[in-house]
């Protein structure tokens, strides 16, 4: 396999929160607690998890919109964490982000054509005239009329704004796009339009994606590889079809079972879905998932599980897979 586009190792990001009154104390929230993964060229890699698991923080830290506290990020062999301002400027052209909320992602006081041309001009890539032509091409590329550039963001619908956000991310011809819940604020029919557009762009432009989502259906459709996050850590990663067919971690099983499926014949009682995600300020001892886990053992309460490579592509952090134990009971994995 060729050199991966992105290699993230042991990435950590902590936030300091001051809380309490009248004697506030500083608490450290481990929003990202040492995550590692690899994204290959042309691949859509999913970061999946519920709110507060750190998946959005991960996306922003990789782009250094948030400064990482520990760990390394390598983009195409280049060190991102220690890149100086000039190197960072060059790297910025190669990795972009699209956002969840189409109403917050565009400057309301700027004509969208100017907003799309701006990066081209700032980086000195084109003359103004060339940039305008490129903007028209970009608008067409994302399915908007070529002359939409003279308008202001408020004149567009949510789905159209999401297209504009995608167009902006494409201006500098990036290789990697971090998509932070790009369709979860949209209606079903618009969601499928945007997903279709993204997949089309991925194939035509050979883009890589880090696709951040809580929606397993969307992930199954769009991504090839996924990692499941829980309280700042990745607990399972592997190819999408395998994880859906045979999830290893009990939390992955729970997520899959909780995802509603548009099929009343598959109606289930959601039996084994227990508890809620604990606060990241004070995560449970040992394996963070143990208070909700149906297979909890003594060791889970004390020791955080090591990474275990189950096969060449899949790995999991769960005591059920340490030596001598056979993993999940067969009935549940199916």
């Amino acid at each position: 396999m060729s050199e991966p586009l992105l290699r993230v190792s042991n990435l950590k990001k902590f936030f300091k929160v001051r809380r309490g009154f009248p004697n506030p104390e500083t608490v450290i929230v481990r929003a990202l607690d040492g995550i590692s993964f690899i994204v290959q060229r042309g691949q859509a890699f999913a970061l999946v998890g519920e709110s507060g698991c750190g998946k959005s923080t991960a996306g922003r830290t990789i782009l250094r919109l948030l400064e990482p506290d520990e760990g390394s990020i390598e983009f195409d062999g280049q060190d991102v964490v220690n890149a100086d301002a000039k190197q960072m400027r060059a790297l910025r052209k190669r990795a972009q982000i699209i956002f969840q909320d189409p109403f917050s992602s565009l400057n309301p006081r700027m004509r969208v054509g100017n907003a799309l041309a701006e990066p081209l001009l700032v980086h000195g890539l084109m003359s103004k005239k060339e940039a305008n032509e490129r903007v028209r091409d970009l608008l067409e590329e994302v399915g908007l009329p070529r002359d939409a550039g003279i308008r202001f963001p408020h004149e567009f619908s949510g789905g159209q704004r999401q297209r504009l956000g995608i167009a902006r991310a494409l201006t500098l011809n990036p290789e990697l796009i971090i998509a932070d819940e790009p369709v979860s604020a949209l209606d079903v029919s618009i969601q499928s339009q945007i997903l279709t557009l993204l997949r089309d762009l991925q194939q035509r432009l050979n883009l890589s994606f880090i696709f951040i989502s809580h929606d397993l259906g969307v992930v199954r459709y769009f991504c090839q590889v996924m990692a499941v996050m829980y309280l700042g850590k990745i607990i399972e990663k592997g190819p999408v079809p395998k994880i859906f067919d045979e999830p290893l971690h009990p939390y992955t099983v729970m997520l899959r079972d909780a995802s509603p499926v548009p099929d009343p014949t598959a109606r289930k009682a959601f039996e084994r879905i227990e508890g809620e995600v604990p606060s990241a300020v004070n995560p449970p001892s040992g394996c963070h998932f143990h208070p909700r886990c149906p297979h909890v053992m003594d060791v889970c309460r004390k020791v955080y599980p090591e990474w275990i490579d189950v096969d060449a592509q899949r790995s999991v952090a769960c005591h059920l897979y340490t030596e001598g134990r056979g993993g999940l009971p067969v009935a549940e994995a199916g």
């Binding site: 910025r92 982000i97 956002f99 909320d101 917050s104 700027m110 700032v122 902006r168």
Partner: peptide
């Protein structure tokens, strides 16, 4: 805190430009 400011940073814009063209008009 709005995403478009974050997008500006991701696009490699400097602080003076972000302040003048994206914060000030708003």
């Amino acid at each position: 805190e709005r995403d478009y400011i974050e997008a500006c940073r991701a696009l490699g814009f400097g602080h003076p430009r972000i302040i003048l063209k994206h914060v000030f008009p708003n």
